[in-house]
Design a protein around this nucleic acid. Sequence first.
DNA 1: AGGATGATCATCT
DNA 2: GATGATCATCCTG
Length: 183
Amino acid sequence: MLPAIEAAPLILGMGLYVDDVGGRIAEVEAYMEDDPASHCYGGPRGRNHPMFLAGGHVYIYRSYGVHWCMNLVTGPEGRGEAVLIRALEPLRGIDSMRQRRPNIRDDRLCSGPGNLARALGATGDLSGTKLGKRIIIRHERKPSKVVSSPRIGITKAADRNWRFCDEESRSLSRNMKIGKNPS
DNA sequence: AGGATGATCATCT
DNA sequence: GATGATCATCCTG
């Protein structure tokens, strides 16, 4: 159980699999308690309830009405801290990913949170479930260089460098230009 | 290469 | 009625 800001860089390089489809996490963002940009802001209500479960649970929400996005809850129960998984390097189940995302280069199958959830088949019915069954996380290979930069696509608390990337990965999301300044 | 736009819906005002 | 933790596509230069 760690604050999301501490868990985020540790999650980089871990393997994330949904029904044995997944790979090595390359890009994440931390969403903290008392963070105006976080869905947990203001306390448990509606879809955000899973954010307040104990670390090791999953929170999945619909974004812009069209995409699903997956978070790993990191904090102790009741705190509402989570890490958004923004990109990973495909390692297993690549055939399934190709089927779900036709005409996409293998190393970009999971580049971006919406794309990642699509490729892994992660949808809202898995929100609130616990790691260890359909969704698992395991050690893979630690990144050699981690860089941090501002989070993507938010308007509140946009100045915080709470996005973390494995700089050597070729699977990062396509908004890398936004905020290159390290912390 | 980079900016604008539409899709589409849960949640909030 | 407006707003997003997004993305693919269609412009413009």
